[in-house]
């Protein structure tokens, strides 16, 4: 094919010889007739289905990835330490809600952060979704929703795992199951929204730094291994933990899961509820995190992908 200034005629002849089009592959093909809103919804659900298909394919790997850490946490802190007398018996009941909250937050967070850092940094694998006929902000919204669901699944799987590891120490009250689910959902959304914000802000070369500067503090200041009320003697640390969204998740689940404790005082058995942060503070902490970081993250995301 030489350079031509009137190419259509010669090109048409060329193509007619080689590849007669069987499908109308270009332009003018019957375009799906949907309303604008319908089209947005279809694109959103298709992107959601893409994530579902990808996660389903590696579901076993996903479970192993999220469950190894809680498995060891529960085994060492909930079983081994009480067994050898390094922790009080029944510590498992205090630990379990924290481990569930931690797993939910970390899984939800990493479900957004890691893929986003890589995608926006150099892979650009998200571009095809950004070119789908929907506002780019909804691509971020989908990421948050899907990651939250991953977090919830991971959190839910902790329960049978804990029942298996802790044995008779597995004590979860069932009369606050509604609140349990609600707190888990909020915790998952908070983790995912946080993950979105971090994922947009962090560059691929900073991933190592992120783990030490964000993940590790998050892990240890989130009231995972200790009830918030017990920190009364270290006031500054108790106040510090309030800045960690995980604190509200851990305390919320502790409130919803831990059954009344029994203790023997002067020969009398007394029953008392474990003291946690007040539930209104829990909801405010979680709700505030979700709203603030969701808005911030989506805004940052939109600015990042459309320069």
């Amino acid at each position: 094919m030489a350079t031509t200034t009137s190419p259509t005629a010669s090109n048409l002849a060329d193509v007619a010889q080689s590849t007669p089009p069987t499908l109308s592959l270009i332009g003018g093909a019957p375009r799906p007739k949907h309303s604008r809103l319908g089209l947005i919804l279809i694109a959103f659900l298709a992107i959601f289905r893409r994530d579902l298909a990808v996660t389903a394919r590696e579901f076993i790997a996903f479970l192993i990835q999220v469950l190894v850490q809680p498995l060891f946490l529960l085994f060492i802190f909930g079983k081994v330490l009480p067994e050898i007398g390094a922790a009080q018996a029944g510590f498992g009941a205090i630990l379990l809600p924290g481990v569930v909250a931690l797993t939910v937050v970390l899984t939800a967070m990493q479900g957004v952060t890691l893929p986003l850092v890589l995608d926006l940094g150099f892979g650009r694998e998200i571009d095809d979704r950004l070119l789908a006929p929907l506002p780019v902000a909804l691509v971020a919204v989908e990421k948050v929703l899907f990651a939250a669901i991953r977090g919830l699944v991971a959190g839910a799987v902790i329960f049978p795992l804990a029942w298996w590891i802790l044995g008779s120490d597995y004590t979860v009250r069932t009369d606050r199951i509604g609140m349990l689910i609600g707190i888990m959902v909020l915790t998952a959304l908070a983790g995912a929204a946080l993950g979105l914000t971090i994922g947009v802000l962090i560059k691929p070369e900073q991933i190592g730094l992120m783990f030490s500067l964000i993940m590790t503090p998050l892990l240890f200041t989130g009231c995972t291994y200790y009830p918030w009320a017990s920190l009364g003697s270290i006031k500054w640390f108790q106040i510090l933990t309030l800045f960690n969204p995980l604190t509200y998740g851990s305390e919320g689940l502790r409130y919803a899961m831990t059954p009344p404790q029994h203790a023997t005082v002067y020969g009398h058995t007394v029953t008392f509820a474990i003291s946690t942060l007040a539930t209104q503070w829990i909801y405010l902490g979680l709700g505030g995190t979700v709203v603030a970081f969701f808005i911030l993250g989506v805004w940052l995301f939109s600015r990042r992908v459309v320069s």
Binding site: P32, I42, D127
Partner: peptide, 30 residues
Amino acid sequence: QRIAVVPQQSNLDRSLKVREVLTFHAAYHG
């Protein structure tokens, strides 16, 4: 809906299989 973009460097969705790259793209477009 009217445009398509082939960038300089591959931005293929490597979590998907080859054929899925095409079918999901079409699904995004309804």
